[in-house]
Amino acid sequence: MTVTWEARGARVGDKLPPLALGPITRTTLALFAGGSGDHNPIHLDLDVARRAGLDDVFAHGMLSMAYLGRLLTDHAPQAALREFGTRFVAITPVNAEPTCHGEVTRVEDGLVTVDLRVELADGTVTLTGQAVFSMEGAKS
């Protein structure tokens, strides 16, 4: 069951419990390629990555955005989600261990805004973003 986040009770400054992920393995990247439909070999094939001048493959940005999506739907019904946007500010290397953070920054006009951030174990911020939920909840 999705945890129901009582959006009406949300206050500016409320933090979502951080979602810590294990290392992003090459297996994770292969599964995510299949599951997401993004088969770009730069995330999968070391030969392609090297030809592009990189030392190794790197994770799909959309994998980290999907983790942020998990953070959101763990704490609010997905049907109340109206907007979800991110900026990919740094590459996520293979074997990185990201943690997703969210903080309520605005509660206004029936909408709750959550600022989002993904950070690696070494402190590198890889994604920043924002989500907006309707306090009215689900749209059928």
Partner: peptide, 30 residues
């Protein structure tokens, strides 16, 4: 599986229906 999702609503039809969904919901970034 690829995103480590642990919420059964996204994988288990019974859990989805118990949560008021007609079928497995499509997650936000899919």
């Amino acid at each position: 599986k690829a995103t480590g999702q642990t919420d059964p609503v996204y994988v288990d039809l019974d859990a989805a229906r118990a949560g008021g969904h007609p079928d497995l919901p499509v997650p936000p970034t899919f």
